[in-house]
């Protein structure tokens, strides 16, 4: 009942011995995620917390421990290199949690992802991660607000996703998978990518898309929805009240001086694509339940 990650996921944690890596790895293990290895260059051969083998390279984690998904908690100056290392180790899915990665580094990573022989999908950076409730949690979201079910959730924001998920769970609707694609201007997986995957997933019946001001990711997703998606979709855009020309916390959340990336434009695109719109962040689940009975 999911996309990208499930109970068969074998996770390697890049940056496992750092403070953030250690804390969240423990949380994910407690949730039931199968963490098969960690990577901290120079600490290869050690055991993390007496239970997870640490490798010097991602390639080693793949060859020796069969890792098939990687999560990255390394500091911003080294994050892009860690992503590239995972791509070259041909890990199918890489999730970069790190916030503050230089934009130019991400431009180079994105070009690498376009290579014809790339086998990797990247989620993030600057994202909460991905969770398939009841099976596998990768990232920093609180596990208990989720519930297994059939609604797919994709979002550029972390805590706003929790808000939407919590609304769903409280109303008795579980989630197939929840993906945070991150708040940076250049990222690995777009709203459209996630919606395509949910659309093709037989275990997802309905979709929630949460966007923010800035860029045109939601407009592109709406064009895709209009053309291809028959499943019910609900959406919300944060930042209708934000002033022009100011970056609102997320590097990607900015309405340019010329007015590109406004909430109004994105709501209009959703309307055109037949997406059920929540005008208010507390009504995200309700907007979906208007058109989806579950």
């Amino acid at each position: 009942m999911s996309i990208l990650v499930n109970k068969d996921t074998r996770l390697v944690v890049q940056g496992i011995t750092g403070k953030t890596g250690t804390f969240h790895t423990q949380q994910c293990i407690d949730y039931g995620t199968n963490v098969v290895a960690g990577v901290t260059p120079g600490k290869g051969g050690q055991l993390w917390e007496d239970k997870v083998p640490v490798c010097n390279t991602v390639a080693e984690a793949v060859e020796e421990h069969g890792a098939n998904v990687s999560v990255i908690y390394v500091p911003p100056p080294f994050a892009a290199d860690s992503i590239l290392e995972a791509i070259e180790a041909e890990i199918p899915l890489v999730i970069c949690i790190t916030e503050g990665v230089p934009v130019r580094d991400m431009a180079e990573v994105r070009r690498r992802l376009y290579f014809h022989n790339t086998k990797t999908r990247l989620i993030g950076p600057n994202c909460p991660g991905i969770i398939t409730p009841g099976e596998c949690k990768i990232g920093i979201m609180p596990g208990y607000i989720h519930k297994p079910g059939r609604v797919g959730v994709v979002s550029r924001s972390g805590t706003l996703t929790y808000e939407a998920v919590w609304q769903l769970t409280q109303k008795g609707h579980g989630q197939s998978t929840c993906i945070g694609i991150g708040g940076d201007p250049i990222n690995g997986t777009s709203q459209t990518d996630a919606i395509r995957m949910f659309n093709e997933d037989p275990d997802t019946d309905a979709i929630i898309m949460i966007g923010e001001i800035g860029g045109s990711a939601e407009e592109e997703a709406c064009a895709y929805i209009k053309e291809h998606v028959k499943k019910p979709v609900a959406g919300f855009i944060a930042g209708a009240s934000a002033p022009k020309g100011r970056t609102m916390g997320h590097a990607g959340a900015i309405v340019s001086a010329s007015g590109v990336g406004t909430a109004e434009a994105k709501f209009a695109a959703m309307e055109d694509a037949g997406v059920s719109i929540a005008r208010n962040p507390s009504e995200i689940a309700d907007a979906l339940l208007k058109i989806y009975k579950g």
Binding site: L160, T161, A238, S241, M248, N280
Partner: peptide, 29 residues
């Protein structure tokens, strides 16, 4: 608020009830 998206959404909801936000403030994770 914690989180940029939720912080923006909080400003939005204040405005939708006729108030005016004095600031955006994300205290982070």
């Amino acid at each position: 608020v914690n989180g940029a998206g939720l912080a923006m959404a909080t400003m939005d909801i204040i405005k939708s009830f006729g108030g005016e936000p004095a600031n955006f403030l994300d205290v982070g994770g």
